[in-house]
Design a protein around this nucleic acid. Sequence first.
DNA 1: GCCCAGGAGTGTG
DNA 2: CACACTCATGGG
Length: 283
Amino acid sequence: MRFELDISPLDLDLTLGCGQTFRWSCLADGSWAGVLGNQFVKIKRKGSTIEGDATPGGSDVESLVANFLRAKDDISRIQLELGKDPIIALGMRKMRGLRIVKLDEWECLISYILATYANIPRIMKMVDSVASEYGRKIAPGVHAFPERRLLAKASVGELAKLGLGYRAKYVHLACREIDEPALAEMMKTPYERLRTELIELPGVGEKVADCVSLFGFGRLESFPIDVWIQRALLRLYGVKGSYPKLRHFAIQKFGCFAGYAQEYLFHNERTMASKGACAFSNQ
DNA sequence: GCCCAGGAGTGTG
DNA sequence: CACACTCATGGG
């Protein structure tokens, strides 16, 4: 099932390779492959559009991809808004094609529970192991992320054997403390209350709750703070301190699109170390 | 071998 | 509210 989409601006390498999502991989020909719902999807840039194909294929594949890539985000408006801050304004235009993605709420919740105190390559491996072991097979060598009912069958010991470490019990408990109706209800919940409810789940603190709010529930005002963001805030703005303090600073500074600012800062800080160049600084 | 990682939970000052 | 400590483990 082939399709073509017009989403602009969009840089697939930036968007899918910057560590928001853990189940997309870049193939030898430069295309990207991942799973959306029960579809194995491949997408690639072709001129000004994005072309792709999906197996087993369905009539809704285009909308699945468009929703995943947040095609309706008005990047110009977002950057105009964020550009009120001169420091962000200086570097964000170089990252115009970096979009926030919209992940499945359940997959996002479990993925970011797994993401605590691990680096991105390892997180990808853990998520992939969980999918391979418990997810439904949808193509040769490709498994969907397991729905709650399937993942709930896994014991803590079995999950630990996949290399999840202390995260195994959190995943196991999360399968029991939340269900699909609750997730659907949370989609309608205002951000601050959603955040509070997420933090009540096992293995979910402020950082994970903010990531799940942003990538899973699409709340662009959310501003997750990890060690990279801490470094960026200290280096570029001279602020440091507790999570609540830094979060207050960011929300006040970046407003309703703080999530995009966070992603620009995150990507810059993470790549700067190897490239030695900061998009937000003239030095 | 060493350092670190998209932290959370728990206990203490 | 702010710290300090522990938790398991693999990637660079």
